[in-house]
């Protein structure tokens, strides 16, 4: 059961990097890929249906951390205090950019929230890089290795975001396989620390009475979770590429 919950935790975290990495990447590249307001709207509209289904993976990571590794939850989050605060503020600012950007039409309003979306996305990628490096090193939150690692995370998310934008735009050579490749690449920066930290995580797993309850209650939810995620990709993946959706203004 310990291994099962380590697996669930790892899967959720890797899923977050693979499925939310491109949203963060597009946010970072918004000023570069979207020179005009129409281009930016098209980019955001392309990622919009996936954001809500993507960012919840991290909410679930935090929940499983609390439920299955309760002693690590306090210890780890507190050890990374400034980074966790930075990550949360970045996350909120990024999401506010998405939710608010199309609520008013003014130029300044749009520019401000597009800026928030971009800055928040950078904040997310950078704090993740610093946090993962600090966890592996078991040391201070700001080190040269951490800065380098943050740059790596920014890089892979940017590649993933670019691939996703190209896949949404359609055209030859922009296959789902290429997107899957960049998803795998985006997951590497978190998969490596997970492998390194696996024995340490197993040392801190919750007692079997707690894990038994979690397994019993959550196992029936797993098929529904998977089905809901698959539904999102079926509903907004293929058909959207035909351009049918283009005449409908996106909510984000």
């Amino acid at each position: 059961m310990d291994i099962l919950w380590l697996g669930v935790f790892a899967l959720l975290l890797i899923g977050y990097f693979a499925l939310e990495g491109f949203d963060i990447g597009i946010g970072m590249l918004l000023p570069v890929l979207g020179r005009t307001r129409e281009e930016r709207d098209r980019l955001v509209a392309g990622m919009a249906p996936f954001v809500l289904a993507g960012e919840v993976w991290l909410v679930a990571v935090a929940g499983v951390l609390f439920g299955a590794f309760p002693h690590l939850e306090g210890e780890t989050l507190f050890a990374l205090y400034p980074l966790v605060v930075g990550l949360l503020v970045s996350w909120v600012i990024r999401d506010a950019g998405l939710w608010f950007r199309r609520r008013l039409d003014g130029r300044a309003w749009r520019a401000f929230w597009d800026g928030a979306l971009c800055v928040g996305s950078y904040g997310l990628a950078l704090t993740w890089g610093l946090a993962l490096a600090a966890l592996v090193q078991g040391g201070p939150v700001l080190t040269p290795l951490g800065v380098g690692y943050a740059a790596v995370v920014v890089g892979v998310f940017a590649i993933h975001g670019r691939r996703f934008a190209a896949w949404r735009a359609g055209g030859p050579g922009r296959t789902g396989w290429a997107l899957l490749g960049s998803a795998a690449l985006a997951a590497v920066p978190v998969a490596v620390p997970l492998v390194v930290a696996a024995p340490w995580l197993l040392d801190h797993v919750a007692p079997s009475s707690t894990l038994g309850v979690l397994t019993l209650v959550l196992l029936p939810c797993v098929p529904v979770m998977v089905a809901a995620q698959v539904w999102v990709w079926r509903a907004f993946g293929r058909r959207a590429r035909t351009g049918v959706g283009a005449r409908v203004p996106s909510f984000f």
């Binding site: 249906p49 809500l52 679930a60 609390f66 439920g67 309760p70 939850e73 919750a206 939810c221 809901a228």
Partner: peptide
């Protein structure tokens, strides 16, 4: 109290909010 208190919060995130947010996006 994490061995007790963490369980309902974990169930809330995976079994409820995860689905709520996904279905809301749909």
């Amino acid at each position: 109290a994490g061995d007790v208190f963490g369980a309902p919060l974990a169930v809330e995130t995976m079994g409820a909010f995860f689905l709520e947010s996904t279905f809301l996006g749909l």
